[in-house]
Amino acid sequence: MRIKRIVNEINSTTTDSTIEIEKLDPVIEKFRNKKGNLIPILQATQNTFGFIPKDAFEYIAEKTGLLLTDMYGVATFYAQFRLKPVGKHIIKVCHGTACHVQNAGIITESIMEALKISDGETTPDNLFTLESIACLGCCSLAPVMMIDKEVYGKLTGKLSVNIVKEIQLKEKN
């Protein structure tokens, strides 16, 4: 149920002094006073910061006259929007039907074990965020996962962990 997420995340939206809120000006300029602009503004905000900081909500409300309640309602309704910072790389493990039948659970569990985080969490070094998503539409390569924009198919637990570790290694060097 979508309502549950609000409770979980409402407290985690923190004020962060490192956010350069002015980066939003061109976004606001582009969408101001256009009907149906709420979702595109939030999408552009997330593209800018990787998530939607609390400050951004207030800034947008001030500049556009959109209501905070409306924005918050929308941001917590759609799966795409994040209210807390994410890791540098986002691991999206597909849990669509085809992937489920081909044992996608193992992929998530193996990565959880390897990175010592739960589904939906970010590693302490802010390198990875692990997410489960509904379907990537690459069903014939099931089970699949997507890290950043790259899709990996025909995975096994071991293989997925190796891919993650490889990225980890690259980051360290």
């Binding site: 149906g36 709420l38 979702i39 999408q43 929308v74 759609y78």
Partner: peptide
């Protein structure tokens, strides 16, 4: 661009989403 909600495949929900609502 959709924002990730299965229910938006339903036509009236889809239109609400285009209008910028939940």
């Amino acid at each position: 661009e959709g924002a990730g909600a299965f229910v938006c495949g339903e036509e009236t929900a889809l239109m609400a989403s285009v209008e910028g609502e939940r």
